[in-house]
């Protein structure tokens, strides 16, 4: 099994750390993983993206030409990456922020009102977790447990109080694609 994921959005939307969570969870689950950010001046204000490969076998190229899943958090990213997804692949968007029509009919599109859901849960910053929940439910590449373990690690000791709301977000996301 192999998932090649690109996550893209504005710098500051947590694109890099969403990718890091996936890579960390993959590692904890004993998979081979790689995480590669776009870097350089385009990060300043512009859009940023990260490529994550999660695989049962060794990762060759960490660069992804044809992602199996893209997670898109703004319209410019949608325009850039919609066309790159492999036929049969997934496009997950934050439907509160991406409102462009999808031109593909050979992929599965999940437009999730992640910000709305996150705000209902009381913390707009967990929107990313909602989408990651949908991602793991749809692809089955990672378990909820390993993602939670990744969260525990990334949040560190000081922010443990944020765990419950993150788990709630993850679960809401998982329900979205049932």
């Amino acid at each position: 099994m192999k998932e090649e994921i690109i996550i893209a959005g504005f710098g500051g939307q947590g694109v890099m750390s969403m990718g890091q969570l996936l890579a960390f969870a993959g590692m904890k689950q004993g998979k081979e993983v790689s995480w590669l950010p776009s870097y350089g001046p385009e990060q300043r204000g512009g859009t940023a993206n990260v490529s994550v490969v999660i695989s049962d076998s060794k990762v060759g190229s960490p660069i992804i030409d044809s992602p199996t899943t893209v997670i898109l958090l703004n319209n410019p990213s949608f325009e850039k990456f919609e066309k790159k997804v492999v036929p049969g692949g997934n496009i997950l968007t934050n439907g509160d922020l991406v409102n462009l029509p999808c031109k593909r009919n050979d992929i599965s599109l999940f437009s999730i009102q992640a910000t709305t859901i996150a705000e209902k849960l009381g913390n707009h910053r967990v929107a990313g977790m909602v989408i990651l929940g949908a991602f793991i439910e749809k692809t089955g590449i990672l378990s909820k447990e390993s993602l939670v373990e990744a969260l525990l690690h990334v949040l560190g000791k000081e922010k443990q109080h944020l765990i419950p709301v993150n788990i709630a977000a993850l679960e809401s996301g998982m329900e979205m694609v049932l």
């Binding site: 890579a23 081979e32 993983v33 790689s34 995480w35 590669l36 950010p37 990762v59 960490p62």
Partner: peptide
């Protein structure tokens, strides 16, 4: 090179 420097792997 920049790719090796910037990427993460276990």
């Amino acid at each position: 090179d920049g790719m090796l420097g910037q990427m993460m792997e276990p």
